[in-house]
């Protein structure tokens, strides 16, 4: 029995859209029981419209979601991540396959938290074989995480201490090169409190007595950034 799945491909590169289409066709060839009804979107605006439309109609079964996308005209939705969140609200049943070129832990972490995707691929790791396998896994028995994502998850879970949201934010800002002078405004903390947190974090990461650079390197390695 043939199952027809509504698929939405969101990517700003037509080449990639075409590649996904190729992959689905290939999948269709090897597993004829799955046929795909494919629609595409090249930016957040289009994607959002399609999602809204689908949420009122027959819905979407599978979404290929890129992360860096041109934002909507009103600037509400600026990335695939935002789209994912919206989709989780409007179409809770939809299986989301995030595919991105980002490999930074902080981004991965953020996406995992906010979108909780059914499939998570890093474009660079991707080969036709992997993509085919991923599509099957997501349709049949999600989730499917790419190797880089799995590595990150493993590193993260091996850390037995907890750092809170403020610490995370602080580390993020530091890594961005935010000046200490601007920190209190961003974190709503006094400079002394920030310094104290920094000192504790340095102890946690075994870099006490060293500079911020060491702390950032350690935190990044541990997957907190």
């Amino acid at each position: 029995m043939t199952q027809t799945l509504n698929v939405l491909i969101v990517d700003d590169h037509p080449l990639i859209v075409k590649a996904y289409q190729g992959a689905l066709n290939h999948f269709n060839k090897i597993k004829p029981e799955y046929s795909f009804n494919i629609s595409t979107a090249n930016d957040c605006e289009q994607a959002y419209a399609k999602i809204q439309q689908a949420s009122k109609g027959e819905g979407i079964d599978l979404v290929f979601l890129d992360i860096s996308l041109p934002p909507t005209n009103d600037g509400e939705i600026v990335s695939g991540e935002d789209l994912g969140v919206v989709m989780r609200e409007l179409l809770p049943e939809t299986k989301i396959m995030v595919s991105t070129t980002y490999t930074k832990n902080v981004r991965l972490n953020s996406i995992l938290r906010s979108v909780n995707p059914d499939g998570f691929l890093i474009k660079n790791d991707l080969t036709p074989e992997i993509l085919t396998e991923a599509i099957e896994t997501v349709i049949v028995d999600p989730p499917y995480y790419g190797k880089a994502v799995l590595k990150f998850l493993r590193k993260k879970s091996s850390k037995d201490f907890v750092i809170d949201r403020i610490d995370r934010r602080m580390l993020y800002e530091l890594s961005r090169g935010t000046k200490m002078g601007e920190m209190p405004e961003i974190l709503n903390l006094s400079i002394a409190a920030i310094e104290r947190r920094k000192r504790i974090l340095k102890e946690e990461f075994n870099v006490d007595g060293k500079g911020d650079r060491e702390l950032l390197t350690a935190a990044e390695e541990a997957g907190f950034i």
């Binding site: 990517d11 080449l15 990639i16 590649a19 070129t101 036709p128």
Partner: peptide
């Protein structure tokens, strides 16, 4: 992105 698309 383009390179990736092309490759896949």
């Amino acid at each position: 992105g383009k390179l990736f698309g092309t490759r896949v």
